[in-house]
Write a protein that binds this DNA or RNA. Sequence first.
DNA 1: GCCACTGTTAGCAT
DNA 2: CATGCTAACAGTGG
Length: 279
Amino acid sequence: MPELPEVEAIVRSLEPRIRGRTIAATELLFPPLLRRAQGDGLNAFRGLRVLGARRRGKMILVECEGGRTLVFHLKMTGRMDLCECGEPVDKHTRLVLRFRDGADELRFHDVRKFGFCILVDGDPAVCCGELAGLGPEPLEIGLEEFAAILAGRKGRIKAVLLDQAAIAGIGNIYADEILFDAGIHPETPAARIKNKKADRLRQSMRHILDLAIAANGSTLRDYRDAGGCPGGFQSYHKVYGREGEPCAVCGRPIRRIRVAGRSTHYCPHCQPRLRGRAS
DNA sequence: GCCACTGTTAGCAT
DNA sequence: CATGCTAACAGTGG
């Protein structure tokens, strides 16, 4: 479930192990992985040194010499695996990057085939539409900007948190955990969250995401960082996946509903529905 | 075996 | 334009 914390953990584990290394060869095992018919465009990356790796929203940017960048999206089940070169390649491996030095290689692994890779030549923030369309980073956004986003939305707050064009990087698990932390019902109209409530929500975003990053993300099934380590934050989930269990704060059963087409978990007592018209 | 469900989001309908 | 479903895929669990 790579959401922001998992992608951040992946980048942190990946970056020091690929930075400075030169790409010797690429092997594309599932051509549709590359978006927009880029054919053998991967050849352009052969011989290029990796300058660094970073995260934007849920995407991973592998920046190379010559202004070229590989942009990856892991979607539901994507992984970046640094493997010993001799290790058997399993059937869900979609792309392999080999390096001139070292005993390991980078494998993009993706069971459900939703993930993608885009080859970018130039400033990715400009040349890559998938990146250009992202909203601000939740760990960096200021209160004014955040409040303005909420004020301009007609939908429910959970849908807004999940909308990558509004705020980049939050997915289903962390949306639920953040809203529980903030004491906000997931169906609250976003525009009615203002002032102190908006600030509390922003603090909860920071707080939950920071804690999750520190725990190396949440592992429900597929997630591993680039070194193969699972995350540990799932044991701190207060609502996600806990339907029927007592709320950690008030003891009432956690409820599960469907919001924005996604399974949504909340405490009906700690996250009351807004009444009246003030917020 | 069959059906429901899963961490994402593009594409289409409204 | 904005918002809300559904499908894309593969696997798991009931």
